[in-house]
Amino acid sequence: MIDKKVQIGDKKFTLGVFNDEGKLLNAVRSLRKKEVNIFDCYTPFPVHHLDKEMGIKRTNLTVIAFICGALGTTTGFSLAYYMNVLDWPMIIGGKPMDVTVFTSFIPIMFELTVLFTAFGMVIAFFTRSSMIHGFKQDILDLRQTDDLMLLAIEVNEDQPISDDEIKSIINNEGALEIRERGQALEVTY
């Protein structure tokens, strides 16, 4: 469930620092052309198409949303049916409480569908993104939530090109600076 990839841990990284999303996108594109495996990018706002360029698959949170919604609908119906039809049937306004008053159940079925969808999906989102209190989160630069964009590439043997080549590509695409992990400020929450 929890996305291991965002846990930086003790790995070694090359960081490209950008101040323009166009340049960042170009750098990602050039690196991907060389089949470099990009660890992650950190941006202060959602950069359009960045996920597609990085090769991130579309999230399947919508499936969770659908399941939670269906659960909500069923809960709504079951509540109404159990309480007002099975357990304690009443006749109100000349309408005997049986399944023919289904119309009356629709509002609450709808509300619970929305409630369950929203909460289910948001909880799944937090879990999936490791946004849980007590979890280590790495802030590589305090300005990554302000005006800088960071491109993080793991330095290891699996990369198809050398670290120097990667650095030169990032440099050519107009990075402000290139850092290695350890030079950046580390803040952990």
Binding site: D40, C41, V47, E111, A118, F126, H133, D138, I139
Partner: peptide, 30 residues
């Protein structure tokens, strides 16, 4: 909640926001 602006999180975040918008719209009406 330890937000760090990761591109992966942003990608998910945007989908979640869109779905929330989608279900909030009939909710407002309801």
């Amino acid at each position: 909640m330890g937000w760090n602006g990761s591109a992966r999180t942003w990608a998910r975040y945007e989908v979640v926001a869109l779905i929330l918008a989608g279900i909030s719209t009939p909710l407002v009406l309801s």
